[in-house]
Amino acid sequence: MLSQESLQQIDREIAKYPPDQKQSAVMAALRIAQVEKGWLPKELIEFVASYLGMPAIAAYEVASFYNMYDLEPVGRHKITVCTNLPCALSGGVHAADYLKKKLGIDFNETTPDGKFTLKEGECMGACGDAPVLLVNNHHMCSWMTTEKIDQILAELEDK
């Protein structure tokens, strides 16, 4: 269900924890699985659970609790904008509005071409860099201006 490379990455994560605590690697394993597959269908969660020897529902609890896991398909690029108060004071909401207009979608929607999904994020711990957005969970973009947003979208368009 997952590539050898992903499984090797998961094995490296498992090795961080005591031998009888494989479940500790579930957050990393779900992240690795999501990176490979784009989102987490239930079969994938079940696979990860059985790979780690934990009940499927326990893995589902984790996947549904942490909001960076996607239990529904998302576009090729997921853009998450922080609109929490400190960011909002420095344009977080304006940046989100700009993205909505530019992509023609609202939060939790995907562009018809399947390229972009827009999400509203909670505090990312980078309030000094506001406006802040996350691209595909792992890449943080700081001090966003409309020009920089245009530039990022253009780059992602081709990826």
Binding site: A56, I57, Y60
Partner: peptide, 19 residues
């Protein structure tokens, strides 16, 4: 055997078996 869990969080938390 854990056949039920509490999935999601906060007000959206719900008791369920695996999908």
């Amino acid at each position: 055997q854990m056949e039920l869990g509490q999935a999601f969080r906060g007000e959206h938390a719900e008791i369920m078996p695996f999908v």
